[in-house]
Design a protein around this nucleic acid. Structure first.
Lengths: 141, 141
DNA sequence: ATTAATGCAAAATCTTTGCACTTTC
DNA sequence: GAAAGTGCAAAGATTTTGCATTAAT
């Protein structure tokens, strides 16, 4: 009884986010939330779905990623102006961005220190602080 | 003889970057580098050029911004996946991003402290560390 | 004259939309 | 069966490209 039950995990997650558990959403949630945290583009997730024999259109993948993000199940990371990344890790954290392979990896919040933030102009409210460490693999490629 | 000579400033800047000082590049350099540091999109710079009666196409503005960036005269800031921003400030620094007005403002390097950076995976070389403080004006708009 | 830059329109991305069809509740 | 979600193709938006023309050295 202590076995992981991924299907119902995804189901519960959708239910508590107020999203109808349709076949497409369940399949995408399974790809996204079963296992480790991940960083995906719409294109990547769509091709994974197709590979897994899930019939879903790219437009629906876009919609779904935005719905998951709005529902607080994921967040969007902006590192490359030509494509959007979505992260299943919604805890406070930061990123390495590998410019060659165009991949992301997490930096936990306690692995980095940002201090001395100046006051925001006009007392604007801080939505989020993103630290992006851009790196380049200087070996291959 | 201590007067500012913006035209030749732009000229010298282009010359030392190895870029031919064409009419379009000179005009754009003038818009960009005369005065305070600025953050521009291609669209914005193009419309400023048109307003200033400079005949230049949007494609050339894109090309020019990229050439200036490659030459180290500017740098690109990624904060919004739907548009590219270019910054005339090439010193180490960070940014506030106003999500409502879609505008940027600089945070000088010494106004913020990033410490305890973890080692890069595989010893990859750090290209740049970007801190983006996303803010929302909670008054108007 | 040679070489580089420009303009234009067309193509290439990536992302969103409109609407008929399908699925969930 | 009412309401919400999906697919598809088409439209949008931003950025890039190809090539003939123009300008800089």
């Amino acid at each position: 009884m202590d076995k992981i039950r991924p299907y119902s995990m995804a189901l519960d997650r959708l239910r508590s986010a107020g999203l109808r558990p349709t076949r497409q959403r369940l399949a995408l949630a399974k790809l996204l939330f079963d296992g480790e945290n991940r960083h995906v583009t719409a294109e990547l997730l769509h091709s994974e779905a197709v590979d897994a024999n899930v019939r879903v259109s790219l437009a629906t993948v876009y919609n779904t990623l935005h719905q998951f993000t709005e529902a607080g199940l994921m967040r969007e990371i902006v590192v490359d102006s030509s494509r959007s990344y979505f992260d299943t890790n919604i805890d406070d954290h930061h990123h390495f961005y590998f410019e060659d392979s165009k991949r992301l990896s997490d930096i936990a919040d306690d692995e980095i220190t940002v201090s001395n933030l100046p006051p925001t102009p006009g007392g604007a409210e801080v939505t989020r602080v993103d630290v992006i460490v851009r790196v380049k693999e200087n070996n291959s490629q």
